[in-house]
Design a protein around this nucleic acid. Sequence first.
RNA 1: UGGCCCAUGGUGUAAUGGUAACACUCCGGUUUUUGGUACCGUCAUUCAAGGUUCGAGUCCUUGUGGGCCAACCA
Length: 562
Amino acid sequence: MSEEKKSLNFLEQIVEEDLAKGLDKHKLKFRFPPEPNGYLHIGHAASICLNFGLGIKYNAPVNLRFDDTNPSKEEQEYVDSIKKDIEWLGFKWEKELYASDYFQQLYEWAIELIKLGKAYVDDQSSEEIAQQKGTPTQPGVNSPYRDRSVEENLELFERMKKGEFPEGSHVLRAKIDMASPNMLMRDPIMYRVLKKAHHRTGNEWNIYPMYDWAHGESDYIEQISHSLCTLEFKPHRELYDWFLDQVYSNKNLRPKQREFARRNISYTVMSKRKLLQLVEEKIVDGWDDPRMPTISGLRRRGYTPESIKKFSEVAGIAKRDNVTDIALLEFFVRDQLNKIAPRVMAVLDPVKVIITNYPKGKEEWLEAENNPEDENAGSRQVPFSRELYIEREDFKEEANKKFFRLSLGNEVRLKNAYIIKAESVAKDANGTITEIHCTYDPLSKSGSGTEESKRKVKGTLHWVSIQHAVKAEVRLYDRLFLDEAPDGHKDKDFKEFINPNSLIVIENAYLEPSLQTAKPLDKFQFQRLGYFCVDTNSTSDKLIFNRTVPLRDTWAKIEQKN
RNA sequence: UGGCCCAUGGUGUAAUGGUAACACUCCGGUUUUUGGUACCGUCAUUCAAGGUUCGAGUCCUUGUGGGCCAACCA
């Protein structure tokens, strides 16, 4: 077996360089740092696969650290969902940690900074502070409180902590440089007063640290060797390093922040704010609606962890803005489901077929292969009888030679059963076909080995026996947005591009009886239709199937062209 | 009008100074009891212009285009 050399992405190269420069490989440590203010989505999967992938590759620990410094947005529900999703993807974290675990340490370090004259309490409003901050092209001006004495700062900060001041009245700021070309270095806020209950620390704190102050120091406390984040944090790196300088001792490892481009996907939105909006405005059925690009949505849609991981791996990691084609993700689910999903027959838009020369009351149980791609998948029995359903679109009274399906006077094979020929139709008053009368060739049974069974016919149809069929609700999902980049239009709201047909519910689909016992999240290929997954709310009394993705459909393409 | 980052087929990545690779999509074809799968084939001289070099997608300069930065969010 020749093993293909995989090229390293630029972050792996950085790790390799650090190793080459003498970094002890046992000191490699990574972290995945979600904020528990929303559900994980496919973009996070890139970061998860990157960090945990690095952990696997170098046999290094990866911490799961919740960045929970803002109690007004964060909730336990999100913590739980995030843990569930990471586990479902198949990754194991070394330690479950929280930025809030470090609140005390962070507080003590802040006091040290005050004592060193590197931090001060500012009494101004956020508006005043914003005004003094300048703009990217103009330097800021110093706060009038910038040169308070250490004693006064210490006392004020203590009172902030005790809850003596209302929210918004005081902040602790790092004293850096109001004229820095980097806005983040213009005396950034380290603490604000927030009298909110925290999901872990309750009412213990009246002040909460800001991201920049908490994140790098948390990395340092955990001795994370490589702290990987998305591109928009690039300007934060200077501040990350500045804060690190304040506490760093060369006896310890110094964490390194590096940035990569977030993964965008066509025909969807990825920001948690917008996803939350879809949930709150009930445009979708919750964070795990199968149309959502969340991990939980994809799971309910029928995606597998493997397909998501493969997608993340192949899409890769780089530094340029990107919009990856959703078709790549769909390719990987199909690719895996093709190998593992049992084939079954289901008719979504039924029209009745009566086989006039098949005896009334007779039934046969025919053998059907479960998966031609998996020889260990075995087979099952499906019932055949005189009255069947086939898809309405599989029949035309008259058809040209490109139509490989059933038409009057022509033969077609019923999958795993017999060759039938359409003889006549019955219609209702509107002209809608209500019955197709066919005859079958008794010698043409699938697998019987007869000459008749080997006869070439143009097409093969799926079907179900009416008297044996089980009913189910089938939900046909399509992309949630009609535009490739719904949030890429400056003058238009992303919701203007919502696909009105993103969900089509078929109340009464007919399935072969073997599906009666299907359990939530079981995956199947409905032959000739697509891959379907049993919904999490499905029961044996009320079966519900979600369409994960349709099969590739070259016939639909041919038809579209005409 | 400041600072930083980025630029390779339709899309996403690779090529680490030595003559553009892989995957997806699209289009065309072969096989097929799923118009599926599998298999085969077509699709770029790397944003532009200069420069360094025997040799540049890769290094330098200048443009051009895109992104990020003025939350008591992360």
